[in-house]
């Protein structure tokens, strides 16, 4: 597991920055909740006048006066965008950075198979995503305890499981893409989750765009639906898992036969 350990060590700084930033924003949001709860009447009237915007972010189904509702909307957006970006950047740089920074020649002239390199790199990406989510959940629970609130644990677990699957799907898709490219990975890494995020907003606004739920993983981690129904869409979650597996497999197939020029 030399490559796995190297990948984790090399990315520890970026992991700390992303995890720290997302955790800090979640902490700030949660400690704002008691004040938000007291001003709920004013907030509700503001949202009532926002039309499609309310539906776009699922605010028509959730109450800002309850911790889960507030957490689902505010913290869900932070985790959705931040976690999606982090997962995408981890995945997209996993293989392409070796060629971009000309280190592939060093790595692949050692007695290690490409399949092993791929396995260890993918595991490292997934480990970083999982560890970030563990820290985030812990920070959320602690933050709620600080302000004297408690989460509905079942809904919280469902919500975070869905976000974790979403991030894994994005990471795997980007990992697969990473095997096909040599440069320009950052643009794809930032563009893909952003595009998927906006697809979900469009899906929320227009019923004609409901087919987008089969494309964007943000559909199955829509906080408004998970929290209001206390269940996640198992079909879409499974589809997300399949897409992740297919994308990673495509990356494997490409990389084991890829010409490495530098």
């Amino acid at each position: 597991m030399t490559v796995f350990a190297k990948e984790l060590k090399q990315s520890v700084k970026a992991w700390c920055i992303w995890t720290g930033a997302i955790s800090f924003l979640l902490f700030i949001c949660i400690i704002m909740f008691p004040e938000m709860k007291n001003e709920m009447d004013d907030v509700s009237s503001v949202f009532a006048n926002m039309g499609g915007f309310t539906a776009a972010f699922g605010m028509d189904k959730l109450s800002f006066g309850e911790l889960m509702g507030f957490y689902g909307i505010e913290c869900g957006n932070i985790l959705g965008i931040g976690g999606g970006f982090f997962a995408a950047l981890c995945g997209i740089s996993a293989l392409s950075s070796e060629e971009k920074e000309h280190t592939a020649e060093f790595l692949l002239t050692h007695p290690i198979s490409r399949v092993s390199v791929l396995m260890q790199k993918l595991l490292s990406v997934l480990a970083r995503v999982v560890m970030m989510n563990i820290v985030i959940v812990a920070v959320s629970l602690l933050s709620a305890a600080v302000v004297g609130e408690t989460f509905d644990i079942q809904k919280l677990v469902l919500l975070h499981t869905a976000y974790l699957v979403m991030q894994i799907e994005i990471a795997c898709v980007c990992f697969g893409i990473s095997a096909f490219i040599r440069r320009g990975s950052i643009g794809i890494g930032l563009g893909l989750p952003l595009a998927l995020y906006f697809m979900n907003i469009i899906r929320n606004i227009s019923e004609q765009a409901s087919f987008l739920k089969y494309i964007t993983p943000y559909a199955y981690c829509d906080a408004s639906e998970i929290i209001s129904t206390s269940q996640a869409d198992a079909g879409l979650l499974a589809l997300g898992g399949v897409i992740a597996a297919v994308a990673a497999a495509a990356g494997f197939l490409k990389y084991v036969r890829k010409d490495i020029f530098s």
Partner: peptide
């Protein structure tokens, strides 16, 4: 096989000692 490329690139942020140790670890 020991291979020395025409242009040598290593992982950014590592020390010389770490790169040499990494190469040895990759060879077990």
């Amino acid at each position: 096989v020991g291979y020395m490329p025409s242009e040598a690139f290593f992982y950014s942020g590592m020390s010389v000692r770490e790169v040499i140790a990494l190469s040895a670890k990759l060879r077990k």
